[in-house]
Protein backbone atom coordinates (compact mmCIF):
# COMPACT_ATOMS: atom_id res chain seq x y z
CA UNK A 1 0.00 0.00 0.00
CA UNK A 2 1.17 3.47 -0.76
CA UNK A 3 1.38 6.23 1.75
CA UNK A 4 -2.01 7.98 1.82
CA UNK A 5 -1.67 11.29 0.05
CA UNK A 6 -2.92 14.46 1.66
CA UNK A 7 -6.31 14.97 0.07
CA UNK A 8 -9.16 17.24 1.00
CA UNK A 9 -12.38 15.30 1.44
CA UNK A 10 -15.85 16.76 1.19
CA UNK A 11 -18.28 15.56 3.86
CA UNK A 12 -21.25 13.77 2.40
CA UNK A 13 -24.23 16.02 2.99
CA UNK A 14 -27.01 14.61 5.17
CA UNK A 15 -30.34 14.26 3.45
CA UNK A 16 -32.12 11.59 5.42
CA UNK A 17 -34.02 13.69 7.97
CA UNK A 18 -37.73 14.34 8.42
CA UNK A 19 -40.72 12.12 7.67
CA UNK A 20 -40.41 10.48 11.06
CA UNK A 21 -42.81 11.87 13.68
CA UNK A 22 -41.19 12.17 17.08
CA UNK A 23 -43.04 12.75 20.34
CA UNK A 24 -43.14 16.45 21.25
CA UNK A 25 -45.08 16.13 24.44
CA UNK A 26 -45.79 19.64 25.62
CA UNK A 27 -46.21 21.27 22.27
CA UNK A 28 -49.88 20.30 21.93
CA UNK A 29 -50.68 21.81 25.30
CA UNK A 30 -48.68 24.91 24.40
CA UNK A 31 -50.75 25.43 21.24
CA UNK A 32 -53.96 25.17 23.31
CA UNK A 33 -52.75 27.59 25.95
CA UNK A 34 -51.57 30.09 23.34
CA UNK A 35 -54.88 30.04 21.48
CA UNK A 36 -56.87 30.49 24.68
CA UNK A 37 -54.55 33.28 25.84
CA UNK A 38 -54.96 35.01 22.49
CA UNK A 39 -58.75 34.75 22.74
CA UNK A 40 -58.68 36.11 26.29
CA UNK A 41 -56.49 39.02 25.29
CA UNK A 42 -58.57 39.73 22.18
CA UNK A 43 -61.91 39.75 23.98
CA UNK A 44 -60.59 41.81 26.88
CA UNK A 45 -59.03 44.45 24.69
CA UNK A 46 -62.14 44.62 22.52
CA UNK A 47 -60.19 43.52 19.47
CA UNK A 48 -62.62 40.60 19.28
CA UNK A 49 -66.22 41.71 19.83
CA UNK A 50 -68.48 40.09 22.40
CA UNK A 51 -70.58 38.86 19.51
CA UNK A 52 -67.69 36.94 17.95
CA UNK A 53 -66.24 35.04 20.88
CA UNK A 54 -66.92 34.81 24.59
CA UNK A 55 -64.15 35.55 27.07
CA UNK A 56 -62.45 32.28 27.98
CA UNK A 57 -62.46 33.38 31.62
CA UNK A 58 -66.23 33.96 31.44
CA UNK A 59 -66.65 30.51 29.95
CA UNK A 60 -64.70 29.09 32.87
CA UNK A 61 -66.82 31.08 35.31
CA UNK A 62 -70.00 29.82 33.64
CA UNK A 63 -68.68 26.29 33.94
CA UNK A 64 -68.03 26.94 37.63
CA UNK A 65 -71.62 28.12 38.10
CA UNK A 66 -72.90 25.08 36.27
CA UNK A 67 -70.88 22.88 38.59
CA UNK A 68 -71.77 24.60 41.85
CA UNK A 69 -75.46 24.76 40.97
CA UNK A 70 -75.43 20.99 40.56
CA UNK A 71 -76.86 21.37 37.08
CA UNK A 72 -73.70 19.99 35.50
CA UNK A 73 -74.53 16.47 36.59
CA UNK A 74 -78.21 16.96 35.91
CA UNK A 75 -77.19 17.57 32.30
CA UNK A 76 -74.25 15.19 32.15
CA UNK A 77 -75.83 12.03 33.56
CA UNK A 78 -78.72 11.71 31.10
CA UNK A 79 -76.32 12.41 28.24
CA UNK A 80 -73.84 9.82 29.44
CA UNK A 81 -76.56 7.21 29.84
CA UNK A 82 -77.86 8.01 26.34
CA UNK A 83 -74.34 7.68 24.98
CA UNK A 84 -73.70 4.47 26.87
CA UNK A 85 -76.95 2.72 25.99
CA UNK A 86 -77.08 3.97 22.40
CA UNK A 87 -73.44 3.26 21.62
CA UNK A 88 -73.52 -0.12 23.38
CA UNK A 89 -76.52 -1.15 21.28
CA UNK A 90 -75.09 0.17 18.03
CA UNK A 91 -71.59 -1.18 18.57
CA UNK A 92 -72.61 -4.65 19.73
CA UNK A 93 -75.10 -5.13 16.90
CA UNK A 94 -72.59 -3.58 14.48
CA UNK A 95 -69.77 -5.91 15.53
CA UNK A 96 -72.03 -8.98 15.28
CA UNK A 97 -73.36 -8.01 11.86
CA UNK A 98 -69.84 -7.08 10.70
CA UNK A 99 -68.51 -10.49 11.71
CA UNK A 100 -71.43 -12.22 9.99
CA UNK A 101 -70.73 -10.23 6.83
CA UNK A 102 -67.07 -11.16 7.09
CA UNK A 103 -67.86 -14.85 7.44
CA UNK A 104 -70.85 -15.56 5.21
CA UNK A 105 -71.05 -14.84 1.50
CA UNK A 106 -74.83 -14.43 1.50
CA UNK A 107 -74.67 -12.00 4.39
CA UNK A 108 -72.03 -10.05 2.52
CA UNK A 109 -73.98 -10.02 -0.73
CA UNK A 110 -77.18 -9.01 1.05
CA UNK A 111 -76.00 -6.58 3.68
CA UNK A 112 -73.00 -4.72 2.26
CA UNK A 113 -75.10 -2.78 -0.27
CA UNK A 114 -77.68 -2.13 2.44
CA UNK A 115 -75.06 -0.77 4.82
CA UNK A 116 -73.57 1.32 2.02
CA UNK A 117 -77.05 2.70 1.38
CA UNK A 118 -77.75 3.70 4.97
CA UNK A 119 -74.26 4.92 5.83
CA UNK A 120 -74.55 8.33 4.15
CA UNK A 121 -78.08 9.06 5.42
CA UNK A 122 -77.83 11.95 7.86
CA UNK A 123 -79.29 10.23 10.90
CA UNK A 124 -80.63 13.57 12.11
CA UNK A 125 -83.01 13.53 9.16
CA UNK A 126 -84.57 10.36 10.53
CA UNK A 127 -85.16 11.81 13.99
CA UNK A 128 -88.86 12.61 13.44
CA UNK A 129 -89.35 9.05 12.21
CA UNK A 130 -87.59 7.67 15.28
CA UNK A 131 -89.86 9.77 17.48
CA UNK A 132 -92.86 8.07 15.94
CA UNK A 133 -91.29 4.61 16.18
CA UNK A 134 -89.71 4.84 19.60
CA UNK A 135 -91.54 7.71 21.27
CA UNK A 136 -90.33 11.09 22.34
CA UNK A 137 -88.65 9.76 25.48
CA UNK A 138 -85.33 7.96 25.77
CA UNK A 139 -86.17 5.36 23.11
CA UNK A 140 -85.73 7.64 20.12
CA UNK A 141 -82.48 9.03 21.55
CA UNK A 142 -81.02 5.57 22.09
CA UNK A 143 -82.16 4.59 18.61
CA UNK A 144 -80.57 7.59 16.93
CA UNK A 145 -77.21 7.08 18.61
CA UNK A 146 -77.37 3.32 18.09
CA UNK A 147 -78.19 3.77 14.42
CA UNK A 148 -75.42 6.31 13.97
CA UNK A 149 -72.77 4.10 15.56
CA UNK A 150 -74.03 0.91 13.90
CA UNK A 151 -72.97 1.61 10.31
CA UNK A 152 -69.35 2.69 10.88
CA UNK A 153 -68.92 -0.24 13.28
CA UNK A 154 -70.20 -2.70 10.67
CA UNK A 155 -67.89 -1.34 8.00
CA UNK A 156 -64.86 -1.34 10.31
CA UNK A 157 -65.65 -4.83 11.59
CA UNK A 158 -66.07 -6.63 8.31
CA UNK A 159 -63.01 -4.85 6.97
CA UNK A 160 -61.11 -6.09 10.03
CA UNK A 161 -62.43 -9.63 9.58
CA UNK A 162 -61.37 -9.54 5.93
CA UNK A 163 -57.90 -8.59 7.08
CA UNK A 164 -57.52 -11.51 9.49
CA UNK A 165 -54.61 -13.61 8.25
CA UNK A 166 -56.21 -16.48 6.26
CA UNK A 167 -53.33 -18.82 7.11
CA UNK A 168 -54.36 -18.58 10.76
CA UNK A 169 -57.88 -19.69 9.88
CA UNK A 170 -56.48 -22.48 7.71
CA UNK A 171 -54.24 -23.48 10.61
CA UNK A 172 -57.32 -23.67 12.85
CA UNK A 173 -59.07 -25.87 10.34
CA UNK A 174 -56.00 -28.07 9.93
CA UNK A 175 -56.08 -28.80 13.67
CA UNK A 176 -59.74 -29.66 13.49
CA UNK A 177 -60.95 -26.68 15.52
CA UNK A 178 -64.72 -26.22 15.52
CA UNK A 179 -66.27 -23.35 13.56
CA UNK A 180 -67.22 -21.57 16.75
CA UNK A 181 -63.71 -21.99 18.16
CA UNK A 182 -62.20 -20.52 15.01
CA UNK A 183 -64.54 -17.50 15.18
CA UNK A 184 -63.99 -16.99 18.90
CA UNK A 185 -60.28 -17.70 19.17
CA UNK A 186 -58.92 -16.67 15.77
CA UNK A 187 -61.29 -14.42 13.80
CA UNK A 188 -62.49 -12.20 16.64
CA UNK A 189 -59.11 -11.52 18.32
CA UNK A 190 -57.54 -11.11 14.89
CA UNK A 191 -60.16 -8.52 13.95
CA UNK A 192 -59.99 -6.73 17.30
CA UNK A 193 -57.40 -4.08 16.32
CA UNK A 194 -59.54 -3.04 13.36
CA UNK A 195 -62.72 -3.13 15.43
CA UNK A 196 -61.18 -0.94 18.11
CA UNK A 197 -59.92 1.64 15.66
CA UNK A 198 -63.41 1.63 14.14
CA UNK A 199 -64.75 2.19 17.63
CA UNK A 200 -62.88 5.48 17.88
CA UNK A 201 -64.83 6.78 14.92
CA UNK A 202 -68.12 5.25 16.05
CA UNK A 203 -67.91 6.82 19.49
CA UNK A 204 -66.97 10.21 18.07
CA UNK A 205 -70.07 9.95 15.89
CA UNK A 206 -72.10 9.01 18.96
CA UNK A 207 -71.00 12.23 20.65
CA UNK A 208 -71.82 14.24 17.54
CA UNK A 209 -75.27 12.65 17.43
CA UNK A 210 -75.89 13.40 21.09
CA UNK A 211 -76.77 17.00 20.22
CA UNK A 212 -79.11 15.83 17.49
CA UNK A 213 -80.68 13.22 19.74
CA UNK A 214 -81.42 15.83 22.37
CA UNK A 215 -83.08 18.16 19.88
CA UNK A 216 -86.43 16.53 20.44
CA UNK A 217 -87.97 16.50 23.84
CA UNK A 218 -84.91 16.59 26.07
CA UNK A 219 -85.14 18.88 29.06
CA UNK A 220 -81.72 17.92 30.38
CA UNK A 221 -78.57 16.78 28.61
CA UNK A 222 -75.41 18.36 27.27
CA UNK A 223 -76.93 18.47 23.77
CA UNK A 224 -80.10 20.14 25.08
CA UNK A 225 -77.92 22.57 27.03
CA UNK A 226 -75.99 23.50 23.88
CA UNK A 227 -79.15 23.90 21.83
CA UNK A 228 -80.68 26.09 24.51
CA UNK A 229 -77.55 28.20 24.70
CA UNK A 230 -77.58 28.52 20.92
CA UNK A 231 -81.20 29.64 20.83
CA UNK A 232 -80.53 32.15 23.58
CA UNK A 233 -77.35 33.25 21.81
CA UNK A 234 -75.59 32.69 25.09
CA UNK A 235 -72.04 32.19 23.87
CA UNK A 236 -70.56 31.40 27.29
CA UNK A 237 -72.95 28.51 27.87
CA UNK A 238 -72.57 27.40 24.26
CA UNK A 239 -68.82 27.15 24.71
CA UNK A 240 -69.15 25.38 28.05
CA UNK A 241 -71.31 22.77 26.33
CA UNK A 242 -68.94 22.44 23.41
CA UNK A 243 -65.96 22.08 25.72
CA UNK A 244 -67.77 19.35 27.64
CA UNK A 245 -68.38 17.49 24.37
CA UNK A 246 -64.71 17.88 23.45
CA UNK A 247 -63.69 16.54 26.82
CA UNK A 248 -66.04 13.59 26.37
CA UNK A 249 -64.33 12.95 23.04
CA UNK A 250 -60.87 13.11 24.59
CA UNK A 251 -61.93 10.82 27.43
CA UNK A 252 -63.49 8.17 25.17
CA UNK A 253 -60.44 8.26 22.95
CA UNK A 254 -58.26 7.82 26.03
CA UNK A 255 -60.38 4.93 27.27
CA UNK A 256 -60.07 3.19 23.92
CA UNK A 257 -56.32 3.72 23.98
CA UNK A 258 -56.29 2.12 27.42
CA UNK A 259 -58.33 -0.84 26.18
CA UNK A 260 -56.02 -1.16 23.19
CA UNK A 261 -52.98 -1.19 25.44
CA UNK A 262 -54.53 -3.93 27.56
CA UNK A 263 -56.02 -6.11 24.85
CA UNK A 264 -53.54 -5.53 22.07
CA UNK A 265 -50.29 -5.74 24.03
CA UNK A 266 -49.33 -8.62 21.75
CA UNK A 267 -48.64 -6.10 19.01
CA UNK A 268 -45.10 -4.81 18.94
Amino acid sequence: MTEPKQRTGQPVSFRGGGFAPKPRRWFGAAVFVTLIALAEWGTRSGFISALTLPKPSDVLATFGELYTSGLLFKHLLPSLSRLAVGAALGVSIGVSVGILIGLFSYMRAGLVPLVAAIFPIPKIALLPLFVIWFGIGEGSKYALIAFGTFTPTVVATYGAVDNVDRTLIRMGQSFGLSWWSIVRKIVFPGALPGILSGLRISLAIAIILLVAAEMLGAEYGIGAYILEAGSLYDLERLFVGVVILSLLGVITSGVIALIERRLLDWRA
Binding site: D165, T167, M171, S174, I186, P189, G190
Partner: peptide
Protein backbone atom coordinates in the same frame (compact mmCIF):
# COMPACT_ATOMS: atom_id res chain seq x y z
CA UNK B 1 -55.88 -36.02 18.49
CA UNK B 2 -55.37 -34.86 14.92
CA UNK B 3 -54.06 -37.57 12.58
CA UNK B 4 -53.04 -35.25 9.73
CA UNK B 5 -51.23 -32.24 11.16
CA UNK B 6 -49.70 -29.30 9.32
CA UNK B 7 -46.62 -27.23 9.93
CA UNK B 8 -46.82 -24.06 7.86
CA UNK B 9 -44.11 -22.04 6.17
CA UNK B 10 -45.09 -18.81 7.97
CA UNK B 11 -45.56 -20.60 11.34
CA UNK B 12 -49.25 -19.60 11.66
CA UNK B 13 -48.95 -18.73 15.34
CA UNK B 14 -51.65 -16.61 16.94
CA UNK B 15 -49.76 -13.42 17.83
CA UNK B 16 -52.07 -12.69 20.78
CA UNK B 17 -51.35 -15.99 22.50
Amino acid sequence: LNPLTFVFQDFALLPWR
